[in-house]
Design a protein around this nucleic acid. Structure first.
Length: 411
RNA sequence: GCCCGGAUGGGGUAGUGGUCAUCCUCUGGGACUGUGGAUCCCAGGAGCCGGGUUCGAAUCCCGGUCCGGGCCCCA
């Protein structure tokens, strides 16, 4: 019986891999242009790292296991907690702010569907150490730049969990957290039930009004009326900044991001063509490091790499590919010439099946080679080589010495 | 964990409770021994797994697995 891949995992064939690497390269380049530097954390961590951050319930949704010494471990379900753990462990005295980026696979034990896998990749950044709106602005700008550069058709929504928290300030933490989750899900029915059982009837209208506030900067005024004792200065300045650099966004005070550790600005980006899983980016400012003994304000985001790869249209710049076609007995010559051509940066494939000339050319055609370099006895005697342009079908015999220049002249 | 729909060579498919399972593509070889894309010929390779009904199951039934869509969840 054949062995299949585990549920929710994928194989990537060369074509797809090339595309993914291209996208990854763009993301890295842009993050590095902003001065972010790559970090990597272990594929598995102590389970406690994740339960500390998200509660015991998440054990159900992650790959958790015991190792041979009985340690409770888990495959990382995300990267913010590991990066903050790393920061607390070994970076807490480095000059601030710190700018980190990461690109790694993560694992979640969930029901797979379109855009959701059990092994998936996240590209993200964390800007650690600044409490200023400028930190939020930079991180949002960076996320925006990446998505723009990948020609994605997306909508960026920016909110602030402070407003909702202010409205809910009298409510005890458990219930507030539950309400935030319902808001995040846009579950109006559940919200109604929850609010009426808690006895927050009077607050309902305000909450509904607030989470419906989506639009341009004018919604700040409306929000001010709903939550008069909130300081909107921070949001104002952030908007000024983003406007001044041309970031296109919508304010959306209904973004709650379910999680307790987000403290201020939160943002998400959505794209079409992904079914139910349309979110391609999520982020915001948070406090998490205190769980590991260092209290420091941070802000960051993560991009859903697989979802982006699914909808991203990128023209790939491919290198030229040459195939060395050789006659029986000249295989060693073929390898020798291949090495020379490779030094010029061209991709070169050599026949390793000792097939007929015809088959070799046919194979060259199948793998979409640009040129065939034909190694024959007659030409070799005169220190020459035949080069065939597989697109036009033209063939020329050139001096071995001039081979590289000739190949370059062909395109 | 829940609901719906699927599963036939590597990929895409046809079909019927009853010989050796259809076709396309693909892969290898040949026609054609120093020149690709075309054509033709030969070869290779399959009914998800387990159970049940039946004289007989790829086909009908049940369970599981995996895939797709939706829910739950979404760090």
């Amino acid at each position: 019986m054949k062995i299949k891949k585990p549920r929710g995992t994928r194989d990537f064939l060369p074509e797809e891999m090339e595309k993914r690497r291209e996208i990854e390269k763009k993301m890295r380049e842009i993050a590095e242009l902003y001065g972010y530097r790559e970090v990597q954390t272990p594929t598995f961590e102590h389970l406690e790292l994740f339960t500390l951050k998200s509660g015991e319930a998440i054990v159900e949704e992650i790959y958790a296991f015991k190792d041979k010494s009985g340690r409770d471990l888990a495959l990382r379900p995300e990267l913010t907690a590991p990066v903050m753990r790393m920061f607390a462990n070994e970076c807490s005295v480095m000059p601030r702010p710190l700018r980190f980026y990461y690109f790694s696979n993560c694992f979640r034990y969930e029901r797979p569907q379109k855009g959701r896998y059990r092994e998936f990749w996240q590209f993200g950044v964390e800007l650690i150490g600044s409490p200023s709106y400028l930190a939020d602005a930079e991180v949002i700008m960076l996320a925006y730049d990446i998505m723009e550069n990948l020609n994605l058709d997306f909508e960026l929504h920016i909110g602030h969990v402070g407003l909702l928290r202010r409205l809910l300030k009298g409510v005890d933490a458990d219930k507030a957290s539950k309400i935030m989750r319902l808001i995040d899900k846009k579950d109006v029915e559940g919200l109604e039930d929850c609010l009426s059982t808690i006895g927050l009837k009077d607050m309902e209208d305000k909450i509904y009004a607030l989470i419906d506030l989506v639009g341009g900067r004018e919604v700040i005024e409306e929000a001010r009326e709903l939550v008069p004792d909130f300081d909107f200065d921070y949001i104002d300045k952030l908007c000024d900044c983003l406007d001044s650099v041309g970031v296109d966004y919508k304010l959306d005070f209904g973004i709650a991001r379910g999680l307790d550790y987000y403290t201020g600005v939160v943002f998400e980006a959505y794209a079409e063509g992904l079914g139910a899983q349309n979110q391609i980016c999520g982020g915001g400012s948070y406090r998490l490091a205190h769980l590991f003994g260092v209290d420091v304000p941070s802000t960051g985001f993560a991009l859903g790499f697989d979802r982006i790869a699914e909808i991203c249209e990128l023209g790939l710049g491919r290198k030229k590919l040459a195939v060395i076609v050789s006659f029986k007995g000249l295989e060693n010559e073929a390898f020798k010439i291949a090495r020379i051509v490779r030094q010029s940066g061209m991709q070169v494939v050599v026949d390793v099946m000792q097939r007929s000339l015809k088959k070799q050319l046919s194979y060259a055609n199948d793998i979409k080679a640009d040129f065939a370099i034909i190694v024959g006895e007659e030409e070799l005697k005169e220190n020459k080589i035949a080069i065939k342009d597989l697109k036009s079908g033209e063939q020329k015999i050139v001096e071995m010495k001039g081979m590289i220049d000739f190949l370059r002249s062909l395109d």
